[in-house]
Amino acid sequence: MNMIVCVKQVIDPESPPASFRIDPAKNEATLPASVSPVIDPYSEYAVEAALRIKDARGGKITVISLGKNLLRDVVKKPLSMGADELILLEDEAFTEGDSWSTAYALAMAIKKVADYDLIFCGRQTSDWDAGQVGSGIAEILGLPSVTLAQKIEATDGKVRVERVVDDGYEVVEVSLPTLITVSNELGEPRYPTIKGIMAAKKKEPVIWKPADIEVESSQIGAAGRRTRLLKLFQPVHEGECEIVGGDSPEEAAANLVLKLREAKIL
């Protein structure tokens, strides 16, 4: 089974909300120097999904990441978890894109890899929370897609996918090759092993430039955008929290109930 996983480097979404800042001049989230970027957690579920299939049936996992300033220790994490190859689309021309231009560049890179049965993406990314790149890649490559997978079982030439829906899940069967986006219900991604980390250290990523994947320069990065970001801002919270006190926790609790009743909330 030949698998491809798309993985994005992002600002750590679990850094404390109070440390999150926006540079209004650039309309950009800024990264405090103390916070290292991470692999987008949803992409990590996608890596885990591929690894589980590799565990069950064997195969090869190629990871592709598009971005700038990709820290090797960060983007190599999927290798240390057990993936086999790493391709980086690392060039100024690829960056500042939107879902459209990102999906296009990734799809062209996947075309170049050529040999694949399954492509995995995360259900969304933890920065723009778009949830489009997976479907976009599938559409550009003319492949079927199943989104929001919580369990994937591969059989010969087919996969069976549990797809999370609003009131439960459905079981969908699709033939290969196909694209699957993975949801967090899959379960925790594994930790890298020491052996994995050592192996990843030795492996050099392959770097592809726009010319390597035969993309049109008008379609990638900022040039390929179809959406415009007018404004990025942090919503302000109106009002302050009223801390209800008392001589003891029990009394504070009782005071809170009275307060809520006074305000006609209870």
């Binding site: 919270h237 929290c241 801390i243 009394e251 504070a252 609790a253 307060k259 809520l260």
Partner: peptide, 23 residues
């Protein structure tokens, strides 16, 4: 506490039972 209207600072194991019985 930055995002809510009312709060109680305390161990829930003490606060919650008292809250429930007052309700």
């Amino acid at each position: 506490f930055q995002e809510v209207q009312f709060g109680v600072v305390g161990d829930w194991q003490k606060v919650l039972p008292a809250f429930t019985s007052k309700v």
